[in-house]
């Protein structure tokens, strides 16, 4: 079955299932995958850094969402040492909007994701980030392959 990962959401699944998130713009989709146990996880983060407020949804931020996703895949039997990450998204949807601070959020999200994964010692084995177009991604937990669909540039697999 295909598990839908919403905005500011994270889910983990096993062999036979897929994880999908739709319409990543400046948001970043992060997948963690253990090829031995075939456990995969996907998070859809919107912002780089949480303000550590108690009530926030951890899956909304790169710095809290990735550890949150890590716990999920570990609880399904993945081993941290075998985990490999793939990331996609972090676009600037409005190509001409240089003056707006909010426009920079895509690249900032990507930086925060790379930094958080680095701190956790999880290698990023593939990424499809930047540009000015949206992406839908799907992780196949059987193979660990990440399919990417765009509106203007077709489909690819990383």
């Amino acid at each position: 079955m295909i598990h839908k990962v919403g905005m500011a959401d994270a889910k983990a699944a096993k062999e036979g299932d897929s994880l999908r998130t739709l319409g990543l713009g400046s948001c970043v989709g992060i997948t963690l995958y253990d090829e031995l146990t075939k456990v995969g996880g996907m998070a859809h983060i919107m912002l780089p850094v949480s303000n550590m407020d108690k009530e926030v949804n951890p899956a909304k931020y790169a710095d809290t969402g990735i550890p949150y996703l890590l716990e999920m895949v570990l609880s399904l039997g993945a081993a941290k040492a075998r985990l490999k990450a793939k990331i996609a998204g972090g676009a600037q949807m409005f190509a001409n909007a240089h003056g707006l601070e909010v426009i920079r959020v895509g690249p900032r999200n990507v930086e925060a994701v790379q930094e958080t994964l680095g701190k956790l010692n999880i290698p990023i084995v593939a990424s499809a980030v930047g540009g000015n177009f949206g992406r839908t991604i799907e992780l196949d937990c059987m193979t660990g392959k990440l399919g990417i669909r765009t509106a203007q540039f077709g489909e690819s697999v990383i």
């Binding site: 905005m7 500011a8 739709l22 319409g23 990543l24 713009g25 400046s26 948001c27 919107m46 912002l47 303000n51 009530e55 926030v56 949804n57 909304k60 676009a91 949807m93 409005f94 190509a95 001409n96 909007a97 003056g99 707006l100 909010v102 426009i103 959020v105 000015n132 177009f133 949206g134 992406r135 839908t136 509106a151 203007q152």
Partner: peptide, 27 residues
Amino acid sequence: PSIPYISIDMAQAILTIGLLSDAPMGD
């Protein structure tokens, strides 16, 4: 208003730009 910015793409990818503040009311 700022100057107009245009994008043609997936609806959710575009609309996200309006959702990026830290929302006190959750998501």
